[in-house]
Design a protein around this nucleic acid. Sequence first.
DNA 1: GTCTATATGTTGATAGAC
DNA 2: GTCTATCAACATATAGAC
Lengths: 185, 185
Amino acid sequence: MPRTSDKRERLIRSADRLILSQGFKQTTLSDIAADSGVPLGNVYYYFKTKEDICKTIVDTRIEAMQALLEQCSQPDEPKARLLRFLDYPPTIKHDLSQDGCPIGTLCYELSRHERPLNESSQRLIHVLLDWSKAQFQAMGRPDAEAMALQFVSNLQGMSLIANALEDPNVIEQMVQRTRSWIESL
Amino acid sequence: MPRTSDKRERLIRSADRLILSQGFKQTTLSDIAADSGVPLGNVYYYFKTKEDICKTIVDTRIEAMQALLEQCSQPDEPKARLLRFLDYPPTIKHDLSQDGCPIGTLCYELSRHERPLNESSQRLIHVLLDWSKAQFQAMGRPDAEAMALQFVSNLQGMSLIANALEDPNVIEQMVQRTRSWIESL
DNA sequence: GTCTATATGTTGATAGAC
DNA sequence: GTCTATCAACATATAGAC
């Protein structure tokens, strides 16, 4: 019987969605329980603490981003990989402008919590930085580090502004600019 | 007697600092009271609600940024104004990498609160966008809107990444890149 | 205007029956 | 494994003496 329970999965999905739209601190266990249809007391069978849920969400988002990045890393030249990644933000521009970037928002919120939660910020942003840097290095650029910084900065900057203005068009415009920049290299 | 009380000012200063390092939701009235040396019950003589404090901090930061922008707007050509603004981030790179941007962090946090708090996000980011756009327009650029987007995106992107990595050098590197971009126009 | 004491509500977490 | 009931801590906000 317990083998077929999908409660843990439902809890994670609800937590992920609620944390994205409300933030981690703002989201209560009661919110997550209600949204997932799991009784409040039962949450503690699956997660030891609220902080434990947060760590799980961090891992979930990191893995989701890594899956996306691998999908963009087909046996191809690095420039095409970067351009292929840029196809993604416009497909979720409405989510991005409504809730911000799942990586960036968590990054910024967790960096103002205590240890060990704030240590997740570094891991989250490194996923994007490391992959980007690898692509610029494969392009033979000695300034790969700085280029990766600019690339990820564009992604995070556009998400924050689009979210603040609630304007999906910001994503379109900035992706277009970033695309032109990559193509010109 | 009450004329010389600086309690309200002390409360604002403490709230501003605490909200910057811990976030608004995370910061309790007790924190602010203790830090400012004002008894908890007395806070409500100066502010009706906690939300009221937040709105005051938003205004404070907007005014501080406007003051800085005016300082960069000496009777000069627009390109020099943008470059003069870029002198600023490196002077506070340690604060930026420790706590993030006072505009951007508040922007991202408040956009996931309910109305009317989330409406402040738009006002906060518009301060930077409007001023930047005005400079690019004065430079005669028809794409001033997109240029302002890229400029502010760089500022916010570098702050988020520097904060996540706790690395002031990210500010230096990205400001240098942004400076080169502006100079090339 | 100032401050102590406290009301009121919410939240993370636990106890214990089933 | 599941769920109800509840605890203990904390946060916002108020009452009321001074």
